[in-house]
Design a protein around this nucleic acid. Structure first.
Length: 433
RNA sequence: GCGUCGGUGGUAGAGUGGUCAAUUACACUUGGCUGUAAACCAAGCGCCUCACGGCUACGUAGGUUCGAAUCCUACCCGGCGCA
């Protein structure tokens, strides 16, 4: 029996759908928002509070837990048990870190060739650093036997421009952002770690890109992601025990190019994954709306395959995604914004530390029924931020999470009641006011 | 009373003849944050101006100097010591 099963309860002609995602640790009513628990915690929020905030599941991170805590998590019986959370969990593959640790940002990231050593400086410090680098190079070079000249790890290159990671076709080499130690991920390694983390749903190792990357770069990353998807899936299928308990989602890429997106969806969709992840980076700072392109993938996927939007978390984007049939959304927005003073309200985002809220004794978001809004005022949360009390970021994060889980809940109900359009228009009219 | 050290922008605290409207931190104002290297980052923060630029400023008042927050004199205020 498959660990992950998805049942669509109702689907609208435009694609929006309400469903139930069955996992070994319970059902997820979709569309659903999935808070990010990078290092086995939703920053600032204890697991006992999850349910009251509408949280049905969460997503932890392979990269971070691999660097610290993997053994402890595994011995505890997996991320969920470790956190004392009895609901479903997911883990991300670490693929995003390949991007966020510096291979992205429009830079060339693959197939570096060795530079002849320059002999211009003789300081002992330089010397020892280089010696270490040489060792690493030799190691990685020796491991690889593909006909294509694989990239190798070059410490100097990696740490220049603030980069910590270098990609090649086999995998990615990176230095820990914590202590600078050297590591390497491959699809097989990512899957193995995710087996040990034991989430109900985990993701294939992929290469994330930015919408500012060129067509060639997007294509290359997409093709590499496809190759890694096959390897991830194969690695997973070889572990029978894990197959009984965990489902694996493949990730499609393609950036801002619809044709690549469609090709990626068809390719990944046809591999036999339990679900599909919309890959990419949808931050507005890139100025390009690659989310629209990503949504082009939905029509290419096998019917009934659950779809997860990776890193999609602004209310407007969740609405847009759900409208096209995205079932689950994970994002750091509620916790990161909350921690830094940004609050989601039905009338748009506000900065609670701003001076105008000092004597505002109204609730954070009028009409919100979350435990923060029903118990505290804007003035109080403002004060907590001004005095740097940790409760401020906690309360703000809690409210934001509720705001997004509740948004998804409302979307779901609207779909089931054939009122999606009305709900969407009503929400946006107020939110964008 | 004598001696001595010190008085700098909202605060603390650099600067000790020109490159000083004045380092830095905090505070303050406002932005930003989309698979978390993020309890973070950025910008602004004397007055006027879109800007170029101008004006007023480093206890107060004078003075030396081409030029002073920086040197001198007096005074005011504060710390410390001696009476």
């Amino acid at each position: 029996m498959q660990p992950i099963r998805f049942k669509i309860e109702k689907q609208l002609p435009g694609g929006a759908r309400a469903g139930v995602l069955h996992t070994p640790h319970g059902d997820i009513q979709t569309p659903a928002f999935v808070p990010v628990a990078t290092k086995a915690d939703i920053k600032g929020i204890e697991s006992a509070k999850f349910s009251s905030l509408g949280i049905q599941t969460l997503i932890a991170n392979t990269y971070h837990l691999y660097l610290s805590g993997l053994d402890a998590v595994e011995k505890a019986g997996g991320v969920a048990k470790f956190m004392n959370w009895d609901g479903p969990t997911m883990t991300d593959s670490g693929g995003f870190q390949v991007f966020s640790l510096g291979t992205g940002f429009g830079k060339k990231i693959s197939k570096f060739t060795p530079e002849p050593e320059s002999e211009d400086e003789m300081s002992p410090r330089k010397e020892s650093g280089r010696a270490e680098g040489e060792e690493i190079r030799g190691l990685f070079r020796g491991e690889l036997s593909s006909k294509r000249a694989p990239a190798f790890y070059d410490e100097e290159l990696a740490t220049s421009h603030g980069k910590l990671a270098i990609v090649d076709d086999e995998g990615v080499s990176f230095t820990s952002h914590l202590d600078g130690s050297l590591h390497r991920f491959t699809p097989e390694r990512s899957v193995e770690i995710q087996h040990r983390l034991g989430a109900d749903i985990f993701f294939a190792f992929d290469q994330c890109t930015a919408p500012t990357d060129s067509y060639e770069e997007q294509k290359e990353a997409m093709e590499r992601t496809h190759a890694w998807a096959i390897r991830s899936l194969r690695a997973h299928r070889q572990n029978i025990n894990a197959n009984l308990k965990q489902g694996i989602y493949g990730i499609g890429q393609g950036g801002q190019f619809d044709d690549l997106r469609r090709e990626s969806a068809r390719t990944i969709g046809g591999m036999g994954f339990d679900g599909f992840g919309l890959g990419g980076s949808f931050s507005r700072k890139y100025g390009d709306d690659s989310l629209q392109s990503a949504l082009a993938m939905l029509k290419e996927l096998p019917e009934g395959m659950p779809v997860h939007g990776l890193g999609v978390g602004e209310p407007e984007d969740i609405l847009l995604g759900a409208e096209h049939g995205v079932d689950t959304f994970d994002c750091v927005t509620p916790t990161r914004n909350g921690r830094t003073g940004g609050l989601y309200t039905s009338k748009g985002k506000i900065q609670i530390p701003n001076a105008q809220y000092q004597y505002d004794y109204g609730s954070l978001d009028e009409g919100c029924e979350c435990q923060v809004c029903t118990n505290h005022t804007r003035a109080y949360v403002h004060h907590l931020f001004r005095t740097h009390e940790m409760l401020g970021p906690i309360l703000a994060s809690m409210h934001n999470i509720y705001f997004l889980t509740n948004l998804c809940k409302n979307i779901r109900e609207a779909i089931l009641n054939d009122q999606f359009e009305q709900f969407k228009e009503g929400f946006l009219a107020k939110y964008r006011k």
